[in-house]
């Protein structure tokens, strides 16, 4: 299985630079293959940058990093037209967003205007400057990080923009053994940038196309929709998952099935990815939050309650 080997090679390559975090790298790769973006919500220093860098290096993609600050302007992200006196015309200097894999660090530290500039690019895969539309290179993958929002001096992402991320992940601290391993490796380890690519960008694009062809049976589709509906009908939920959420979950499932070497999606995939794909798209009732409900609880509840399709649809 050629595709499977390529994918395994990528994951193995990432593991060489970062200790543990197999799950996060797998999920990130899933999002990449599904054409979605990832929001990492975690404290600094747990290896976010390293992971993204090694992912970019493994696929031979151009890696850009934008550090968001309160005074960052949209043009700092998108690029700017500058007058070239020699050629007597404006010349476009692309900003850091023009790249394959972008790490948008601390996205909630910048003003909403700048956030919007990034998020538009994420959704449309193109940017518009001075009336000109510029297609962004493919693949285009943004991994944004944000500090947990209760920190001061932040601009929390509005709900509509949260919806644009396929996954919201939490990296978490490494285990004790992993951390010791990190320390041990730091003495001799090559940097992530120096990791040799294991596949080409074209291979990756091919994999992306393959992911869209993974079979999603009508039973599984209805299962996804049932889950999304269940979040909307849940008594503690104020805002449930949008259809974009169901669509994203399905695409993610396809990519995940591909990573696991299957050409069809199973309900297990759905159940596995559902918390990552849905958790940032749900708002609880304030009352429910006070009385101790959390989004994670709601999603566990949804998974437990929605009936998994186990019969053929034509069977009575």
């Amino acid at each position: 299985m050629l595709h499977k080997e390529k994918i395994d090679a990528i994951l193995a390559n990432i593991e060489r630079t970062i200790v543990g975090k197999r799950v996060i790298s797998e999920l990130s790769l899933t999002a990449l293959l599904a054409g979605g973006h990832v929001l990492l919500e975690d404290v600094p220093g747990v290896g976010k940058t390293v992971m993204v860098k090694s992912l970019a290096a493994s696929i031979g993609a151009e890696f850009k990093r934008i550090q968001f600050t309160p005074d960052l302007l949209p043009s700092d992200v998108l690029g700017v037209s500058i007058y070239n006196p020699q050629r007597m015309e404006f010349e476009f200097r692309p900003g850091p967003i023009v790249g394959n894999i972008i790490l948008a660090d601390e996205i909630n530290r910048t003003s909403p205007k700048t956030q919007a500039a990034l998020l538009e690019g994420m959704e449309e895969s193109s940017i518009t400057i001075d009336g000109k539309t510029l297609q962004l290179p493919q693949p285009f993958f943004v991994m944004a990080t944000q500090n947990p929002i209760e920190y001061e001096g932040t601009y929390p992402l509005p709900e509509a923009q949260m919806d644009r991320f396929l996954f919201k992940l939490k990296m978490g601290y490494p285990t004790r053994d992993e951390e010791i391993e990190v320390l041990a490796r730091s003495e001799s380890q090559m940097t992530a940038e120096l990791t040799a690519p294991v596949i080409t960008l074209d291979d990756l694009l091919e994999l992306q196309v393959l992911a869209t062809k993974v079979i999603v049976d009508v039973t599984v589709k209805s299962y996804i929709v049932d889950c999304a509906t269940a979040t909307r009908d849940h008594p503690t939920v104020y805002l449930g998952v949008s259809p974009r959420g169901s669509l994203g979950l399905m695409k993610a499932c396809q990519a995940y099935a591909l990573i696991n070497g299957r050409n069809y999606v199973t309900p297990d995939d759905v159940q596995y990815l559902l918390p990552h794909a849905f958790s940032h798209r749900i708002i609880l009732h304030p009352d429910a939050e006070y009385s101790g409900h959390s989004i994670d609880n709601v999603l566990v509840d949804v998974i437990a309650k929605v009936r998994v399709p186990i019969m053929r649809t034509n069977a009575l």
């Binding site: 199973t266 297990d268 159940q271 998974i303 437990a304 929605v306 998994v308 186990i310």
Partner: peptide, 10 residues
């Protein structure tokens, strides 16, 4: 018994 929310593989 299989709970409604349990997948077949589990």
């Amino acid at each position: 018994k299989k709970p409604a929310g349990m997948t077949l593989s589990i």
